[in-house]
Computed example of a mutant assay.
Amino acid sequence: MVDRETARERVLEAAEELFYSRGIQAVGMAAVRNASGVSLKRLYQLFPSKEALVLEFLQQRDSRWQRALADYVDAQPTPDERIAAVFDWLYKWFSEPDYRGCAFINSFGELGAVSPEVAEQARHHKKAFHDHLAGLVTASGRPAELADRLALLAEGAITTAAIFGTPEPARQARDAARLLMHTP
């Protein structure tokens, strides 16, 4: 028998792959059971409801996403390069073969009207991203409102890349960000 933590990891890994690739509402707990190899009884011991599993999936994805972005951006030597690096990181993410857009936008679209907890997770993720951009803008010495504009560029690129299946919106958004950074 698999220990609790290993079973939990297997369930979350399977749920993430299934929820992200197919959508949350299209995936039942039986599909998560089959993909994870964890019995349905054990699955419900770990996650008493599908919503509990969805929320844990979103929390885990948020932590990993924010950390990966920060690691990439923080490796750049100057504030301006860090801002541009946000869009370069987005390009790398959009280039992944399984890219289906933002899991938080997707989950909000599916469940935001019926699950306040899912809606809150999506808001939390977007606020953390915006706060990261605001910190980068502050470090560059530019006006605070630039962060709002950069966030809109990034969010538009995230959605456009998913719809059209190309990473190019990240480059277009980076070019627009550079123009905004040099506009008085």
Rank of each mutant, 00 (worst) to 15 (best):
F87T: 05
H124A: 15
A84D: 12
H132K: 10
A103R: 02
T78Q: 14
G112N: 07
E145G: 05
A144Q: 09
P79F: 11
S107D: 01
C102F: 01
I105Q: 02
P97D: 08
F104A: 04
F129K: 07
D98I: 10
A84C: 13
G141E: 10
H132G: 09
E96R: 15
N106V: 00
F104R: 03
A147W: 02
E120V: 08
T78D: 10
W93L: 15
V137K: 10
S115D: 06
D148I: 02
A84S: 14
R82N: 08
E120G: 09
L136G: 05
G101Q: 08
V137N: 06
L133A: 09
R82K: 15
E117W: 08
F87N: 05
F94N: 02
L136V: 00
G101M: 11
E145S: 13
W93Q: 12
F94Q: 11
H125D: 00
P79K: 09
F104T: 06
H124M: 13
A139T: 04
R100N: 13
T78E: 13
F129T: 11
P97L: 08
A113R: 03
E81N: 04
P116V: 09
E145V: 12
S115N: 12
C102V: 01
F87I: 11
E81C: 00
S95F: 03
S140R: 04
A134W: 03
E117Q: 15
V137E: 00
V118L: 12
F108N: 04
I105E: 11
E96D: 12
D80K: 06
V86E: 12
G112P: 07
E120C: 05
Y99P: 09
A134V: 01
A128L: 14
V114I: 14
H125K: 09
E81Y: 11
R123L: 05
H132N: 00
V114M: 06
F129W: 06
D131Q: 14
A128I: 04
H130I: 02
P97R: 10
E110P: 06
L111F: 01
V114C: 11
F94H: 15
G135E: 05
E120W: 09
R142V: 03
F108I: 01
R123S: 00
K92T: 14
V86N: 08
R123V: 01
W89F: 15
A85F: 13
F87H: 00
R123C: 07
A147E: 07
A139Y: 10
H130C: 02
A122K: 07
I83K: 05
Y99T: 06
W93G: 06
S140K: 01
E110R: 04
Q121F: 05
V137F: 06
V86L: 14
A139R: 14
E120P: 01
Q76Y: 12
Q121V: 02
L90I: 05
G109T: 05
